[in-house]
Design a protein around this nucleic acid. Structure first.
Lengths: 123, 123
DNA sequence: GGAATATTAAACCAAACGGTTGACAGTCCC
DNA sequence: GGGACTGTCAACCGTTTGGTTTAATATTCC
């Protein structure tokens, strides 16, 4: 059942997860959900040099999460969320493992309640 | 609608995404879906030293994705998928952006089909 | 042409990464 | 006790990362 999950495109997954592993970059992506933005726009909220922010944007671009079009002197960036799909799908194969544990926990709690009911109520 | 997504626990997300950004570590996690395994078991498929594999396992452990119990001389590892949930949820906020694009594409294709149907030959 | 604007490039730095090797520490078993 | 076994630790190495600063490159405006 899990053998099918053979990771067809590991390098892309590496790049996407790596891009997402930084708070600044995640914030930039969130920002882009509100609409396109220039490099300057994306950099503005962060207490780092423009050059540093530009590098972060490059990482996002390399992971395919941003598309850039140059318009005059400003580079406008758009969200390209599609590559996240692969990441989400990879994780989704593990979903049953945390829901299973939650179900098990619930079962244990229910059993304990049951037990308490047996004793407390009667004795 | 997206303003609510303020990243309550950024460091944990950093750690999870970083842990997932390596092919070897993802393979180890997949391996663990088949059941618990020792450090040696997890290391065995990879053409690297045991020490290197041990470091990867440490990264997974630090991200909370693995729980380890020492039994005699062997360290047995179990999958702890729960922290992936946060990652999945973060990504899920972007889901509409790639489905939207797919829908838009579909709409364009439909419109083109429509157009073809209207004046068939050309305009 | 020249100044201001928007962004990347290049050189540098410290820290982290992914790997190695060799030494060490528990544990099991004779 | 003495090996074999399982695993970590420490030191090291080369590369990448995330940041800086100081140019350099386009572009727009006057």
């Amino acid at each position: 059942m899990f053998n099918h999950m053979v990771e067809r495109n590991a390098p892309a997954l590496d790049a996407v997860f790596h891009a997402l592993s930084d708070t600044t970059r995640r914030a930039m992506l969130r920002r882009l959900t509100a609409g396109e933005a220039t490099v300057g726009d994306l950099a503005e909220p962060f207490p780092m040099s423009l050059a540093a922010a530009s590098k972060h944007i490059r990482v996002l671009e390399d992971a395919g999460l941003i598309r850039r079009t140059v318009q005059g002197r400003s580079h406008i960036c758009r969200l390209e969320a599609a590559p996240m799909h692969a990441g989400q799908e990879w994780i989704s194969h593990f979903q049953r493992f945390w829901t299973e544990r939650l179900d098990a926990l619930e079962a244990i709690l229910n059993a304990e309640d049951q037990h308490k009911g047996d004793h407390d109520g009667k004795a």
